[in-house]
Simulated assay, not measured.
Amino acid sequence: MSAIMTLVVYASAAFAEIAGCFAVWAWMRRGASALWLFPGVLSLVAFAWLLALSPSIFAGRAYAAYGGVYVAASLAWLWAVEGRRPDGWDAAGALLVLIGAATILFAPREG
């Protein structure tokens, strides 16, 4: 799997996870209808399926690398959906975790 396709898979998984979790958040914290839980559950199932497409042969490594993408995607969600622009500290933190995620996922390894 190419690096671009890996990024697409991880970004899609992040969107699905955040959307699913946000559905629960909206229901519990914002008083949204319980009907929000149905697409939320479907979204979380899509997240798990997408993450299983990771090119890593070890689940733990795939999840660790995904964590960095999740942080950056969460900040994009903050801005796009919740209307709150991330600040410089948010951007710096996202950059750090993305560098870590890339290091974990794409480092040359034996076997």
Rank of each mutant, 00 (worst) to 15 (best):
V8Y: 04
V8E: 08
V8K: 09
V9Q: 04
Y10I: 02
Y10P: 00
A11W: 07
A11Y: 06
A11E: 06
A11F: 07
A11M: 09
S12H: 10
A13F: 03
A13T: 09
A14R: 12
A14C: 15
F15K: 12
A16Y: 07
A16V: 07
E17Y: 09
E17F: 08
E17L: 08
I18N: 13
I18F: 15
G20V: 08
G20I: 06
F22D: 15
F22C: 14
V24N: 09
V24K: 07
W25D: 15
W25G: 13
A26S: 15
A26Q: 15
A26P: 13
W27N: 03
W27H: 07
W27Y: 06
M28I: 13
M28C: 14
M28R: 15
R29E: 15
R30Y: 12
G31I: 08
G31M: 04
A32H: 14
A32G: 13
S33N: 04
S33R: 05
A34K: 12
A34W: 10
L35C: 03
W36L: 13
W36N: 13
W36S: 13
W36E: 12
W36M: 14
L37V: 10
F38K: 02
F38G: 02
F38N: 02
F38V: 00
F38M: 02
F38A: 01
P39Q: 06
P39I: 02
G40M: 10
G40I: 11
G40T: 11
V41Q: 03
V41G: 06
V41D: 01
L42P: 15
L42K: 12
L42S: 15
L42R: 12
S43N: 14
L44M: 11
L44D: 02
L44C: 09
A46K: 12
A46N: 14
F47S: 10
F47G: 11
F47T: 11
A48W: 01
W49D: 07
W49Q: 07
A52D: 09
A52H: 02
A52G: 08
S54E: 00
P55I: 00
P55E: 05
S56Q: 08
S56H: 02
S56M: 02
I57V: 01
F58K: 04
F58W: 00
A59E: 04
A59C: 02
R61I: 01
R61E: 06
R61L: 04
R61M: 00
R61A: 01
R61Y: 01
A62K: 02
A62M: 05
A62Q: 01
Y63E: 00
A64N: 03
A65H: 05
A65W: 00
Y66R: 00
G67H: 08
G68M: 05
G68Q: 06
V69C: 04
V69T: 09
V69R: 04
V71R: 00
